[in-house]
């Protein structure tokens, strides 16, 4: 299974404080360990929400909201995508992560990624066909 491991934002990460060299080194080592174990599929760090934007859907209207966003603890500072046997293995790897926000309370949240099978009958042949059409359009835009 795949798991997304989300690093929750903190006051420091939201105000653009960059990680120390020590943390970068430790994180680099941890990432290397993940890669060497064949676990890490992808991972990125994110800029503070002050550089982000939101599109809010409300009562049939779409509203664009510029960052920063208030609810710091609910925001995301980075993520990994891991290939693991089960949630227990993901948990065990997460326990090995260096403290991502030294000096602050930090949270890693582990969420299983949906497999296509999980959608069951909601993901109808029509929906798949629609996805196909969309992909075709994207490809067309890319080549034109």
């Amino acid at each position: 299974m795949r798991a997304m491991v989300i690093v929750k934002a903190t006051k420091n990460s939201e105000s653009g404080v960059m990680p120390s060299e020590k943390l970068l080194t430790e994180m680099g080592k941890f990432n290397e360990e993940l890669i060497k174990a064949g676990v890490m599929l992808a991972g990125e760090g994110l800029h503070p929400s002050s550089r982000g934007k939101r599109v809010v859907f409300s009562s049939g209207k779409k509203l664009v909201v510029d960052g920063p966003f208030a609810e710091t603890k609910e925001l995301i500072a980075g993520y990994w995508l891991w290939q693991v046997k089960d949630m227990d293995e993901a948990l065990e790897w997460a326990r090995r992560c260096p403290d991502p926000m030294p000096g602050e309370d930090a949270t890693l949240e582990i969420r299983p990624v949906f497999e296509a099978e999980d959608f069951g009958k909601e993901f109808t042949p029509e929906l798949r066909a629609q996805e196909d059409r969309l992909r075709a359009q994207i490809e067309q835009q890319r080549s034109s």
């Binding site: 890669i35 060497k36 174990a37 064949g38 676990v39 290939q83 046997k85």
Partner: peptide, 17 residues
């Protein structure tokens, strides 16, 4: 089915070695 995942993992490990 999980043998595919196991093999991929072994391959990725070997590639890093």
């Amino acid at each position: 089915l999980e043998l595919c995942d196991d093999a991929l993992r072994l391959g990725r490990i070997l590639a890093s070695l």
